[in-house]
Design a protein around this nucleic acid. Structure first.
Lengths: 194, 194
DNA sequence: CAAACACCATACGCACGCGTATTGACAAGC
DNA sequence: GCTTGTCAATACGCGTGCGTATGGTGTTTG
């Protein structure tokens, strides 16, 4: 073993821990983030964890912060990419399609822990962002300020509620034809005609 | 039953425990239902609890079952009381006003624990019930079967999502004038004109 | 080459929550 | 009056999960 290929060693960075935490959140919710189980999952013991982080709370905070920034960029890209506000709105709905996408699954998990003290501020920020994003699009479609704000809230609420129905498997699978019909109905109902 | 005033002894029945559990769920969520803390809250030790229930799970199951029946009656009363489907729909939205009402607060709490194995079937039943209630009303307003079902799902989703926004205090207080304006907007958007 | 540093393993103390076991108090029925 | 049944208090064992302490190994750096 003269030249140990560094494949094996693979020291973990704080970012690795954060990614692992986010995966756990996506799969099993915030409460499932336990130091020891996470460490096991990373193939390491918790002795290491407490070198990178002072405690569990710091891990969650930093992970959520990282996710928040990541989500920010995602939204920005979406906004820049598409000119037509109507198309942007439709794409917003379609985003619920992206199940088993880390960023999106984390969001779903967070939605179901709105009282968690660490989640609350994050969720608030995201709701603000998405709501104003929606309101903006509605205004561009010619709605008055107040109406646009209301419609945005309604749309956001419908989106979040749909996430829950999907969680209970009481909503059609995103790929199914029924989903497309439903989506069409939603679009017709919530997006004003051009 | 000749004379003994039963004021002092106050033995607890299983129903008392269930009520206590539901209060806890309403205030702090399903996970907050711990045997010992609940016992303390009832002014008693857990030694008694395990006489009435085999374990914690049974308590939660029976409490939820009791709540489910209670909610069933509530809905039934609502349906019987009001003839006009449009009025019924409006009342459905207004029910989100009933914060700090035990039955409703429990529902909110359950909505935020959809993955909990004991909550899942309950939530499913309620979602079914309310969705078909809504679909029925929409059909009575002249919508086709499929459209009514879609609109019902959308409406239910919007309702659940709004609960979350309220939880985050990002939605107007039910008594405020802004709430009335928003409600009006929702009605105009989701309920087809007569 | 020795000391310092970065990263990880092992082992412990502690709190909390579930469930059980044992005992006690108090009423009703034989 | 003594047994039986009902409800409650106390005390334990057990698992889990957090955080700490301490020691070890490899890599850097003076």
């Amino acid at each position: 073993m003269a030249k140990p290929q560094k494949i094996e060693k693979e020291k973990l960075t704080a970012a690795d821990w954060e990614r692992g935490a986010l995966e756990l959140i996506a799969e099993q919710g915030v409460n499932a983030v336990a130091v020891e189980s996470l460490a096991r999952r990373m193939g390491i013991t918790k002795g290491s964890f407490y070198w990178h982080f002072p405690n569990r709370q710091a891990l969650i905070e930093q992970s959520l912060q990282r996710w928040l920034e990541h989500d920010e960029r995602n939204l920005q890209i979406l906004m820049d990419a598409i000119e037509d506000p109507r198309e942007r709105l439709i794409l917003f709905f379609r985003r619920s399609t992206q199940v088993h996408q880390l960023t999106h699954d984390v969001y779903t998990a967070l939605c179901f822990a709105p009282d968690h003290p660490l989640v609350q501020p994050v969720l608030e920020a995201v709701a603000d962002r998405r709501t104003s994003y929606l309101a903006n699009a509605f205004r561009q479609l010619g709605m008055a300020d107040e109406a646009a704000a209301f419609r945005a809230r309604l749309t956001y609420a419908a989106y979040v509620g749909y996430l829950q129905l999907m969680q209970q498997e009481q909503a059609p699978e995103p790929e199914s034809p029924e989903f497309e019909s439903y989506l069409e109905h939603v679009i017709k109902t919530l997006i004003p005609a051009v």
